[in-house]
């Protein structure tokens, strides 16, 4: 089995990111939400106390064929 394409992405700040993948005429995307917690852990308390992102996210143009999960339809 041949390995698929790989990618690396570094988040410069917290907030919402759109990552778009293109292969010929095919295109798909995902929205990633990055949170910063005080102690870098994922406890519930840390998540509830996460810092707000420095900037508001833009309105993204979606490329996915299937409907987005309910939480992304806002």
């Amino acid at each position: 089995m041949q390995p698929g394409a790989t990618m690396q992405y570094t988040f410069a700040h917290t907030g919402a990111y759109q990552i778009i993948a293109r292969d010929g005429t095919a295109v798909d995307d995902i929205i990633v939400y990055a949170f910063e917690t005080e102690d870098r852990r994922t406890t519930l308390a840390a998540l509830l106390a996460a810092k707000p992102p420095p900037n508001a996210a833009p309105v993204f143009t979606r490329y996915r064929a299937e409907p987005a999960p309910e939480g992304e339809r806002k």
Binding site: Y33, F35, L47, A50, A57, G71, K74
Partner: peptide, 19 residues
């Protein structure tokens, strides 16, 4: 099950995370 408004919070639409 907690349903926090993580999406609005991460998009910067709200300054505080609410459930």
């Amino acid at each position: 099950n907690l349903q926090p408004d993580l999406v609005d919070f991460a998009r910067g639409k709200t300054s505080a995370l609410t459930i």
